[in-house]
């Protein structure tokens, strides 16, 4: 009987504001269409896709994947810290996550500079059209995610979140995880699978 009384009620809704989840689902739907379009467009000229895929820097993509995974983990640590009312620790983890996000942008930008220097454009061929548009669309999401994380870090520093109320941090966190989630599919699809 006492076990029944003390058991936690079943949770039906995900962490964070429900509105961000609707937004995330819309974003994920767009990326799903992008991924499927890439895969089916590739059927038209597999040899060409494989040839130009070989020009991509897999090492840079590996660094970026590890960067985003690590950044996501840091956000989880920030949330765990604020749940224990450790505000300063939480801010430090958020700043570390932001630093990882910045590293992603630097590595990705270096890739773009290299490709543009080689004369690669959206109109070069279908593979590069997908590569540039897919990765740049994701790049913009990283930028937006960093703006959100920076705002969350500032509010945490100002004392807006605590162990009892941290919905805003959860909301920013799930958006950042979505950015990571999308890259986890994009990396093998565009850089590795052939």
């Amino acid at each position: 009987m006492s076990a029944t009384l003390t058991a936690a009620p079943p949770v039906r809704y995900p962490p964070g504001d429900l509105a961000i989840w609707i937004f995330i689902l819309a974003e994920l739907a767009v990326f799903a269409i992008f991924f499927a379009s890439y895969a089916f467009a590739r059927m038209g000229d597999v040899a060409m896709f494989n040839e130009y895929q070989a020009t991509l820097d897999k090492g840079a993509a590996l660094i970026n994947t590890l960067t985003l995974i690590t950044s996501s983990y840091f956000v989880v640590r920030a949330l765990a810290a604020i749940r224990e009312d450790q505000r300063k620790t939480s801010v430090r983890w958020l700043l570390a996550a932001l630093a990882m996000g910045a590293l992603f942008l630097v590595v990705k930008s270096a890739e773009y500079v290299h490709h543009f220097g080689e004369g690669v454009r959206l109109s070069s061929n279908t593979f590069y059209m997908f590569y540039l548009s897919l990765t740049f669309f994701h790049f913009l999401h990283v930028v937006l995610g960093m703006v959100i994380l920076a705002a969350v870090a500032l509010k945490t520093h100002q004392g807006a979140y605590s162990a009892s109320e941290h919905t805003g941090m959860e909301t920013g966190g799930v958006y950042w995880h979505m950015v990571d989630l999308v890259w986890l599919i994009l990396f093998p699809l565009v850089y590795v699978m052939r």
């Binding site: 949770v11 809704y13 989880v76 799930v174 995880h177 979505m178 989630l181 986890l184 699809l189």
Partner: peptide, 19 residues
């Protein structure tokens, strides 16, 4: 990649244990 995505959803996004 799909396994990694599910792990992100379950453990990082906090969906594990939801009803």
């Amino acid at each position: 990649a799909l396994i990694k995505g599910q792990l992100i959803g379950d453990f990082f996004m906090g969906l594990k244990g939801l009803r």
